[in-house]
Design a protein around this nucleic acid. Structure first.
Length: 872
DNA sequence: TTGTCCCGCCACTAT
DNA sequence: ATAGTGGCGGGACAA
């Protein structure tokens, strides 16, 4: 079907029927009607098939059905059409495409590498958050004239590097190289921890002396193994902030290509000469644990996959093909030509554990989500929304950041002890000069040994990327907490990164006290270079990783029993019903908002909404299984929070007690944090900074009609509470400090964007909006450009139809509590636009988030409560 | 020959 | 059942 569509699409494209809107084309019925004609045409156009193969003569074993025939025709014609189109577009002088010069188009023209090139050409190295970075697999496939299958190959590799991330089926988000430094840093770290370097050495050794004798020791046997049994080594290294998006849709365990890709890259990053031969790589990747690996075929297959991966990596200019000459002749190999100066990952042991467990975590999250949203009885009565996952993840990440925040913001980064930075790495051509638009030609000097070795001194690492690359390397900014602030006047919103002034005990709640140290504008960075000042400004100072004792941490972590499932929450009688209790969540904050941000946001929401319209969860969508209502939680709640909790709890209990509830209404309460819930990730001493980039939920814009985006300006304010998942020990950021530290509008820190990860009210709002639980910008009349700058409108917010069951009488007003004192306090239903959502839903969300958090670390209700304030 | 790797079948998984 | 994914390896080029 799809291929047919593509085929037809191709046909029309080449016929000159180029539609402005690919989507339209994809779905337009027009293409269907001429089908017969098209096929005929195709048939007649069929030329020498480049890769005919078996399909040629009546399918080997395939029944000769009209369908198969059609399929055959299509497949046969497809390349031809592709070629023709190619000539049309790429070969202007190639006059008469009439009889195609498809003579030699062959393989090379169809190579994955080339395809990848074309694909990459469609997107900037560093995405403009203001633009639509959505990638529709279908569209891409259609526009590139290839079958989806090929796109998957590319996407998988790109995804492994977090250059893209998957949003949903058929949909990816483009991140470009923004995350690359972090990704590579992490991969290198993981690779080191897996001692791939040594393994490679061993393999090489043995290869010399012997034939087949890989089995480089039980490398990563010790680690998780993800419960995958045989696939012990199947772990996917994720990058905070990038991975979770796919969590909801990625369930397939065997994403070998992705994993392989990462491992492959790891090999480069840990091998001293940055050269890896396919053979060695295949050996290692096969993961042939001490078992017989005589699988010649397996090896072969692996190599084939490696070629696929390598082609993509080559397109990315990360590697280049070289040859290593050995006794037995020259063997294919690849050399790393990518960046060498990416920041080393600060976190040591703990991080790795995290990486390794990512899969596991994710799995558990998925499971949890599944369980959560699939009530025993009805399977799909409930819907889970990615944004929830995002939210949970964000919170979790925030916590991690906080927990791992370095003790001293001023300390200069010390070349990481041992592992990461110590080894001298060949200094390739510094990729620093790479430009978004003009990727530098790979200077390939294959066998030539790298002349100089460079120690990754802090300075070196901080080499700014002229490209406007995200300069905020995780390590550099580790101690910083991004805070997205509404922009006051002209410059657009900017984020402020705050240093944690101290790092609390890993196991205790952070007490972020911070200073605004850096701010960035959210200007689109296209073409402009990020201010180096930004980078230099703080980077050297931030990298200090207190990591009081990484090893210790690790030990602690590992010590934690893999533990059994969390104690089952007590069940409550599902029959009890509760009258709908409504939470009111202010949709806007009183601070003025940046038009731009609003714009983006709105567009984003709009875009989202498109998809949501059809599957917007019903009011009951988030209703929870009782089992998940009570999750063990942290007991370390700040008193303030406890108060809130108590308030809420009592309130809820009251409600529960006095009313009939729908299933699963247990009093929400914080449960003492149990040790086993302390996921290792929580302990990561990394002040991992996720570049708030492209992925900002708000950094979306309908590229196709900027106008409409501009038309209405959402009035939402998104201020993140210090990225803290904790009740903001509010002293950290005051309006005063803000203004003081706020860069001038024309600040050179033009950065790019950032994604923000703080579990802020904003996010909650956003999430809720996405969930359809609260009205979005589009549905809130009050959110008009005019009101954008004005605080609140005492107007009442029209409730979404599906939420119409509120009773003002039994409402709880929850309002975001931001570290940044809100100037305009919401005073109640009449004070500002409020949206009512059912208590149940709120609880559902909270519970779900809790559930999600389990996979990552302790996250409890108390973590969320800070973002709300009972208004009563 | 060996190296590359296109192509698409088909198993799986999500809906 | 259908559609989206992606493992996998046959076998066609390319060197």
């Amino acid at each position: 079907m799809t291929s047919l569509n593509i085929l037809l699409l191709n046909y029309f494209v080449q016929q000159g029927n180029v539609f402005a809107e690919p989507q339209a084309l994809t779905t337009t019925p027009r293409k269907v009607s001429p089908q017969g004609t098209v096929l005929t045409e195709i048939q007649s156009n069929m030329g020498p098939l480049t890769t005919p193969t078996k399909g040629k003569e009546t399918g080997p074993s395939e029944p000769w059905t009209p369908t198969s025939n059609l399929k055959m025709l299509i497949s046969a014609a497809s390349p031809e059409i592709r070629n023709r189109e190619k000539e049309l577009c790429m070969d202007p002088e190639g006059g008469d495409l009439g009889e195609e010069g498809e003579k030699q188009i062959s393989r090379k023209e169809k190579s994955l590498g080339l395809l990848c090139h074309k694909f990459l050409a469609r997107y900037p190295d560093y995405p403009n958050p203001a633009l639509n970075n959505d990638i529709s697999l279908d569209d891409v496939a259609a526009e590139l004239n290839v079958e989806r299958r090929r796109i998957y190959d590319i996407m998988n590799v790109l995804e492994s590097l977090h250059i893209v991330s998957r949003l949903a089926k058929n949909r990816y988000t483009w991140h470009g190289r923004a995350n690359l430094p972090q990704t590579l840093a992490k991969l290198r770290q993981v690779g080191e921890e897996h001692r791939y370097g040594q393994q490679m050495q061993q393999i090489r050794q043995r290869s010399l002396e012997r034939e087949f004798d890989s089995d480089g020791d039980e490398k990563e046997n010790e680690e998780v193994g993800g419960g995958g049994g045989s696939q012990k080594e199947m772990f996917f290294v994720e990058l905070p902030g990038v991975e979770f998006k796919a969590a909801s849709v990625n369930s397939r365990k065997d994403k070998s290509l992705r994993v392989m890709s990462q491992k492959f890259v790891m090999l480069f990053l840990v091998s001293t000469p940055r050269v890896v031969s396919l053979e060695v790589a295949a050996r290692i990747l096969i993961g042939e644990d001490q078992v017989a690996d005589q699988d010649k075929s397996k090896f072969k297959t692996k190599v084939r996959r490696l070629y696929d991966i390598a082609n993509v990596l080559r397109s990315l200019k990360l590697i280049e093909k070289v040859h290593v000459t050995e006794e037995r002749g020259r063997k294919p190999a690849f050399e790393w030509t990518g960046p060498e100066d990416f920041p080393s990952v600060k976190e040591t042991a703990a991080t790795t554990a995290t990486a390794k467990r990512t899969l596991e975590s994710r799995t558990s999250i998925d499971n949890c989500a599944k369980n959560l949203f699939s009530s025993p009885g009805s399977k799909h009565s409930f819907t889970r929304h990615p944004s929830l996952i995002k939210l949970a993840k964000s919170i979790q990440e925030d916590r991690r950041k906080i927990n791992s925040a370095p003790t001293s913001p001023v300390k200069s980064k010390t070349p990481k002890p041992a592992v990461t930075v110590t080894e001298a790495v060949p200094n390739h051509e510094q990729k620093a000069a790479k430009k978004p638009g003009a990727p530098q030609p790979p200077v390939l000097t294959p066998t030539e040994p790298r002349a100089s070795t460079v120690h990754l001194t802090p300075q070196a690492q901080f080499t700014p990327q002229p490209t406007g690359a995200m300069s905020f390397h995780p390590t550099q900014c580790s101690p910083l907490i991004p805070v997205l602030l509404p922009q006051l006047q002209g410059g657009g919103p900017y984020a402020i990164y705050m240093h944690h002034s101290f790092r609390p005990h890993p196991l205790t709640r952070p007490q972020p006290t911070s200073l605004a140290v850096r701010s960035m504008t959210f200007e689109d960075k296209t073409g402009r270079s990020p201010s180096d000042a930004t980078v230099h400004g703080h980077s050297p100072a931030t990298n200090n990783l207190p990591t009081s004792s990484p090893s210790l941490l690790k030990r602690v972590c590992s010590k934690r029993p893999s533990e059994e499932s969390p104690s089952k929450a007590k069940r409550i009688d599902p029959s009890t019903r509760v009258r709908p209790v409504l939470y009111t969540i202010p949709l806007r904050s009183s601070v003025d908002t940046s038009p731009k941000l609003c714009e983006i946001l709105q567009a984003r929401l709009k875009a989202r909404r498109g998809g949501l319209l059809s599957n917007r969860p019903s009011p009951r969508a988030l209703h929870l299984d009782p089992e998940f209502v009570n999750t063990p939680g942290s007991s370390v709640a700040a008193t303030a929070n406890q108060t809130l909790e108590q308030n809420l709890e009592t309130f809820l209990e009251e409600k529960v007690a006095t009313s009939d509830s729908e299933a699963g209404l247990t009093p929400v309460r914080a449960v003492p944090l149990t040790p086993h819930h302390l996921h290792t990730e929580t302990l990561i001493p990394t002040g991992y900074l996720i570049p708030i980039s492209q992925q900002s939920p708000f950094s979306y814009k309908d590229i196709h009609n900027p106008e409409s985006s501009k038309a209405s300006t959402p009035t939402y304010i998104y201020h993140t509470p210090t990225a803290g998942s904790r009740p903001p020990p509010i002293q950290e950021l005051t309006p005063t400090s803000l203004s003081l530290h706020r860069p001038p509008p024309a600040s050179p820190f033009s950065a790019q964007v950032h994604r923000f990860h703080s579990p802020s009210p904003a996010i909650l709002n956003f999430t809720l909006q996405n969930l359809g639980l609260i009205p979005g910008p589009g549905s809130v009349p009050a959110c008009s450009p005019g009101t954008a700058q004005t605080p609140e409108h005492p107007s009442s917010v029209p409730l979404p139809p599906h939420l119409g069951l509120h009773q003002r009488g039994s409402m709880v007003f929850v309002k975001p509590m931001s570290p940044v004192p809100v100037q305009h306090q919401m005073t109640g239903p009449d004070g500002q636009p409020l949206t009512l959502i059912r208590l149940q839903q709120v609880r559902g969300i909270l519970s779900y988030i809790q559930c999600l958090a389990k996979g990552f670390g302790p996250l409890e209700l108390c973590d969320l409560l800070p973002y709300f304030r009972l208004q009563t």
